[in-house]
Nucleic acid binder design. Sequence first.
DNA 1: GGGCTGATTTGCT
DNA 2: GCAAATCAGCCCG
Length: 202
Amino acid sequence: MLALELHKLSPEFYVQPTLDAARLLLGKVLVSGESSGLIVETEGYVGPDDPACHAYVGRTRRNQVMWGKPGHAYIFFTYGAHFMLNVVTEREDYPAAVLIRAVEPVLGLEIMRQRRNLHLLRSRPLDRNLTNGPGKLCKALDIIAELNGISLQSDRLFIAEPPPEIALPPFQIIGTTRIGITRGTELPWRYYVKGNRYVSRL
DNA sequence: GGGCTGATTTGCT
DNA sequence: GCAAATCAGCCCG
């Protein structure tokens, strides 16, 4: 099984500044159970002074994981319909995280199509539609509320250095403003792999 | 290919 | 009450 060959990112990786982590996570492989994908788009949400960060309003039950230890998954529900996956960064008691916005599917394509209900569409869907958005990738990879707060050293959900046979070719990183927010819109804290088909939008 | 709408949780005003 | 780190289905053309 692929998971056994992978080298998980160390707990120390997540301690570094959030925007550094956001850039370095591009090209890494996100593994959730039997499904996995290469991270191609991220956003940083950085601390209590970032108006777009959930922790801007202080600690709540919903955002408490962000204030906890780095290297854990902050998963929240929004728009009454979708889950989003973040990885907590920096030190404990400083609320910061990287939102995973898109991945390129690697393993488990068929189960991803089933979870996304794309296997029964008439016009054959492009597989780029499986995981090219934060809500879509959570659905495709079965990332659910029960995993909120889980350690990324766990075998159920983790991030690893991709082995050469699945790694992206060398890429450039594009930085832009973040998507889907109304405050902090001027901050260029979104990053994506230039030219990758699975980026949610340009 | 674009615009509108519903899904229906969480937390603030 | 309503806006939110969204998406799919529908309408229209």
